[in-house]
Design a protein around this nucleic acid. Structure first.
Lengths: 253, 253
DNA sequence: GCTATCTAATTGCATATGCAAATGACAAGC
DNA sequence: GCTTGTCATTTGCATATGCAATTAGATAGC
């Protein structure tokens, strides 16, 4: 079913006069998508409409849209028109991915348990671990994910209440925090760090492994327009997990 | 200094007649670069020349070259023309990178030592570890890299002699195997796997850590046109190393 | 109601044309 | 030799035009 075109207001597209016209158009549309003005699934005005609105030739508009399509922000089909793409669920080696999906892809049964949940200013320990200011109000959630009943990964997460206020009313009983955030927050940038660490006593108990056993630690922080959204530490029992990626010398294969 | 244009034979560009013309051109040029016919640093024929040779309009040729430039395979400058780019030394989180560079970027003094070197068919143990057939002739090299005199990473590598025959005459006294390969082989595809493992006794001794201490293991295999080139296991003391990457929801930031 | 057909909206592609911008090469002048 | 200026080459950008391919939606026929 086609979306209502009224959801993408044509006059929202504004050029900034710097650089080539096609690139001004590209950036204008890109920004409308990234800041959520044009939501995924809504339709982008057809080339003719943009052409008249912006006073550019169709080929110039076309060039901008083709490039956005190659970047994956929009998808285009003849006659149907152009719609805003949904951010890909997974890409490259270590994308933001859903742990339920990750487990199901391995053909295992998934379940999870929220071990603790606190909404308040961070303790000194948590502030240190996640690089927070003590004054920032956050939600702190610890979740254990299981595959076929066995501990799969231990997730410790902070969510910035100022950026994602809706989290206050969510108890993560239907969906673990990572998946809930995918649908309830926007992010424009992420940073990963991978390291190998020995399991601490608490971690070892939750994961059912020996203290000191090697674990793969993935620390991820995400921002939206430079405002921190969430930070997470994912602790995987090292013996059971590998992360795999494929690519070519110039990037994509 | 500009390269001799004679190194890029114009008649080497052949279209295959499938798909849009601009894409045929793009693929034809891309293949000439990837298979080494047009070496990095050599100049690509100017748009006018390709246009006449191929019987396409300049805009069509232009479109193909602009796209290749965006993909990073060529670099273009007005008046100077178009030259084949060198593969980027590093990109994204876990690219093929030079360990000397990695150490120097940390501001530390680099040195290395080749611990062993054997050119022959693989032992059962090595074949298992790298997924080789016992019949393939390989070179097996173990190298310890140091930063400020301290062990930094232990590298164990196999190189396929059939694909990189020149390795037989190289003793890696001037340059470690990874860096030597960057200049003496081509690759079109790579696969990484990251995991956390406990240090084995041998590893622990070389790295100066305790047996069982967590280490980050990076296993990388590279191919050129589906022929295996090299496989390497890089063992980093986990406590001292992290790998960091940054990106946005749609890929590049 | 269901299906086949037609129509028109929309993107995809290629060409031709013209001018702008950057700059390597060379010549002129000191 | 050195600097300065001019010229020609090459890429960058935008427009106008025309046709092809796809297909959603309307229409006609059963």
């Amino acid at each position: 079913m086609t979306q209502d075109a009224a959801t993408t207001r044509l006059d929202a597209v504004k050029l900034d006069g710097t650089g080539p016209i096609y690139d001004q158009i590209r950036r204008a549309v890109r920004d409308l998508i990234l800041n959520g003005t044009w939501a995924p699934g809504t339709s982008v005005p057809p080339e003719h409409a943009l052409m008249e609105q912006l006073g550019a030739s169709r080929m110039t508009v076309h060039r901008a849209l083709v490039q956005l399509a190659r970047e994956g922000l929009i998808t285009r089909r003849r006659r149907s028109g152009t719609i805003v793409a949904s951010p890909p669920a997974s890409h490259a080696m270590l994308d933001i991915l859903s742990i339920p999906d990750e487990v199901k892809r391995l053909g295992q049964r998934y379940d999870y348990e929220v071990l603790s949940r606190e909404d308040r200013r961070p303790s000194a320990e948590i502030a240190l671990r996640f690089g927070l200011k003590r004054s920032e109000k956050i939600s702190h959630v610890v979740t254990l994910h299981r595959a076929d009943g066995r501990p799969h990964v231990l997730e410790e997460r902070v969510i910035h209440l100022a950026v994602v206020p809706a989290v206050a009313g969510e108890d993560f009983s239907k969906m673990p925090p990572g998946d809930w955030l995918l649908g309830n927050s926007l992010w424009s940038e992420a940073e990963h760090a991978i390291s190998a660490v020995p399991a601490e006593p608490d971690d070892a108990q939750h994961l059912g492994i020996e203290v000191g056993e090697p674990c793969l630690l993935i620390e991820r922080r995400t921002w939206n327009q430079s405002a921190p959204v969430t930070a997470v530490r994912l602790l995987y029992p090292g013996a059971r997990h590998r992360f795999i990626g494929r690519f070519g010398p110039y990037g994509a294969v």
